[in-house]
Design a protein around this nucleic acid. Structure first.
Lengths: 218, 218
DNA sequence: GGTTTCCTGGACTGCTTGGTCCTATTTCGG
DNA sequence: CCGAAATAGGACCAAGCAGTCCAGGAAACC
């Protein structure tokens, strides 16, 4: 997880507030541009211009484009996890899951399904190209799924979810439905497939509730 | 669907067997290379070399790289639909769906989940970049889902599937689980998430079977 | 068999892009 | 306040890229 080993030969480096601000500005611009254009289609000059910096600053903070992309993977992963933690760490009921679903759908509907999930799009673009980025993304997905499965475990402990439910598998299925939903929504410019996919996954989870609320399942 | 309107100003064009063969060779090479490297990361020189052709032939058969990519989208879409038609057009039972699932998982396990679905990876890479490619991909996904929903309709007509099941939504959910499964499998280099996702979708479909107990094998 | 049209080969070009370098300015410890 | 290191600016470079061009074959039609 640490990334200090990339330090220059002259290992001792002072770091100023201004430097940190510049680095953040670069990452923020890269995040924005690469989300809408894709990683490979975004040039360093685009980023330089959008971040109001210069070439030397890019290469002062990042060894090369690949390092910038890897830093972006972690940056974006941290953003997503932070957002998701806020929405999932108190998850204790099925209706909480529904609220979580609605928030994701609503956010994605703001741009008609375009751009998809920031992590998912990077995953498909980078997985076969940069092993380090792939494994970093994989870790982020795992952490995201764990936020979900932790909530399901809490529901299990409180008796809401049956003991024979497998929270890890349920979380994986939900994540796959979410990512697949993002993808189909992006391709069709229509969020309906995303809703259908998420509802399928939620219905599957509901079938493991201790007291099947709502519609009978047979 | 016709693509003859791209003909040159001198509209009448003779076409020889050799020309067709060259065009196919180019598409085949592009298909192969762009699957593993991604569309944007594959250069025309890569394709030229892999297809044993020359620059002039590339530009003789395709106006530019974008046109080549668009042709590839249709080419790959036709391949997938052909393959899927073979596996789905006779679908009449739940066990047929299971066999279909197993075939996809097995195919993907051959490369440890790498590369994902040829359509899905293009979808995320091109949807925000080339409107024409996006809509073409969207049509292919719709046709693919229809192959599934047609099978589910047959199951419904024969009384296997309950009348209150919605074959279109079930097909969409299954497709999302498949695509999300591909994505997670690709990111983790592990096909387990794909299996879990597909099993969730199949379980969801099974919950709509007329006789909900164990799977009937016919 | 001759001519027209299609097909092929590959050298060439101009632009974009990632990456380098040198100089100027700011920051900060002492 | 002084020097050293960090930060910034932006011109510059070489490689890689999509796309052009033209001359020489190969088909096909008469």
């Amino acid at each position: 997880m640490s990334d200090e080993q990339v330090a220059a030969p002259t290992n001792r480096r002072r770091i100023s507030q201004r430097g940190i601000a510049t680095r953040d500005r670069i990452l923020e611009a890269a995040n924005r541009l690469m989300l809408v254009r894709g990683v490979n289609a975004t040039t360093l000059d685009d980023i330089r211009e959008a971040s109001q910096t210069s070439k030397s600053q890019l290469y002062h903070h990042f060894a090369d484009k690949q390092e910038l992309v890897r830093a972006l993977v972690k940056y974006r992963g941290a953003l997503v996890l932070q957002r998701e933690r806020a929405g999932l760490e108190r998850l204790r009921s099925f209706s909480g899951l529904v609220r979580w679903r609605n928030a994701l759908v609503q956010a994605n509907s703001l741009n008609n399904g375009k751009y998809g999930c920031g992590l998912g799009s990077m995953a498909l673009e980078l997985s076969d190209q940069d092993e380090q980025a792939r494994s970093s993304l994989s870790e982020t997905f795992a952490a995201w799924e764990k936020l979900i499965s932790d909530g399901l475990h809490r529901m299990q402990d409180s008796g809401l979810l049956r003991q024979d439910a497998d929270p890890e598998k349920l979380a994986t299925g939900l994540m796959a439905a979410l990512q697949g939903g993002y993808l189909l929504a992006n391709a069709s410019h229509n969020i309906a497939p995303m809703e259908v996919a998420l509802d399928m996954a939620l219905e599957h989870i509901r079938s493991f509730l201790a007291q099947p609320s709502g519609e009978p399942t047979r």
